[in-house]
Deep mutational scan, measured.
Amino acid sequence: MTFKAIINGKTLKGETTTEAVDAATAEKVFKQYFNDNGLDGEWTYDDATKTFTVTE
């Protein structure tokens, strides 16, 4: 399945996608990506659209 992340950061904005077997796996991938890029913020997840949003 394809999962999307919308990034609303102070220094980084945009979208990225990942292929994962479930939402928990996708969340781990996205959180690692955000940690690697120095992002920290509020997380939400919309199961209907398979979209994570992080707002810094």
Rank of each mutant, 00 (worst) to 15 (best):
Asn35Phe: 14
Val54Thr: 01
Asp47Arg: 05
Ile7Glu: 02
Thr18Tyr: 08
Trp43Leu: 06
Thr18Leu: 13
Asp36Gln: 13
Thr11Ser: 10
Thr16Cys: 15
Ala5Ser: 02
Val29His: 14
Gly41Phe: 15
Thr11Leu: 10
Thr55Met: 08
Glu42Ala: 09
Thr2Glu: 08
Lys13Leu: 09
Glu27Asn: 03
Met1Gly: 07
Asp22Thr: 04
Thr53Ile: 08
Ile6Glu: 04
Phe52Ala: 00
Leu12Thr: 10
Thr53Pro: 00
Lys13Cys: 15
Lys4Asn: 05
Ile6Asn: 04
Asn37Ser: 11
Ala5Met: 15
Phe52Gly: 00
Lys50Ile: 02
Asp36Ile: 08
Val54Ile: 13
Thr11Tyr: 14
Phe3His: 03
Val29Cys: 13
Thr16Tyr: 15
Lys10Asp: 07
Ala26His: 01
Leu39Thr: 05
Gly9Glu: 04
Ala5Trp: 08
Glu15Tyr: 12
Glu56Asp: 08
Thr25Lys: 04
Val21Thr: 11
Gly41Pro: 05
Lys13Trp: 13
Phe52Pro: 01
Tyr33Glu: 03
Leu12Cys: 15
Ile6Trp: 04
Glu56Ser: 08
Val21Gly: 06
Ile7Phe: 15
Ala26Cys: 02
Thr11Pro: 07
Asp46Cys: 08
Asp47Cys: 06
Asn8Ile: 14
Glu19Gln: 14
Lys10Met: 10
Phe34Lys: 03
Asp36Pro: 03
Ala5Phe: 15
Thr18Asn: 02
Lys28Arg: 11
Asp40Glu: 12
Val29Thr: 08
Asn8Gly: 04
Glu27Met: 14
Gly9Arg: 05
Thr49His: 04
Ala48Leu: 11
Thr49Glu: 04
Phe52Tyr: 03
Asp36Met: 11
Asn35Gly: 11
Gln32Glu: 11
Val54Trp: 15
Thr55His: 08
Gly14Asp: 06
Tyr45Thr: 00
Phe3Gly: 02
Ile7Val: 10
Lys31Leu: 07
Trp43Gly: 00
Lys4Gln: 06
Ala26Ile: 02
Thr25Asn: 06
Phe30Thr: 01
Tyr45Met: 00
Asp36Asn: 10
Glu56Gly: 05
Thr11Asn: 12
Lys31Arg: 14
Thr11Gln: 11
Thr49Arg: 06
Ala24Thr: 08
Asp40Asn: 12
Thr55Gln: 08
Ile7Cys: 12
Trp43Thr: 02
Asp47Pro: 13
Asn35Gln: 14
Ala20Leu: 03
Thr18Arg: 04
Leu12Ile: 12
Ala26Asp: 03
Ile6Val: 12
Val29Lys: 10
Asp36Ala: 12
Tyr33Trp: 14
Gln32Trp: 05
Gly38Asp: 08
Ala24Asp: 07
Thr44Lys: 08
Tyr45Trp: 02
Gly38Lys: 06
Phe3Leu: 01
Asn35Ile: 13
Ala48Phe: 11
Ile6Met: 05
Thr16Trp: 15
Thr55Leu: 07
Val21Cys: 10
Trp43Ser: 02
Thr2Met: 11
Met1Glu: 12
Ala5Arg: 00
Gly41Cys: 08
Lys50Gln: 09
Asp22Ala: 01
Phe3Asn: 02
Trp43Val: 08
Tyr45His: 00
Val29Trp: 14
Thr44Gly: 05
Thr18Cys: 14
Glu42Cys: 10
Asn8Lys: 13
Asn35Tyr: 13
Tyr33Ala: 04
Val29Ala: 09
Trp43Phe: 07
Met1Asn: 09
Gly9Leu: 15
Lys10Glu: 11
Leu39Trp: 15
Glu19Arg: 13
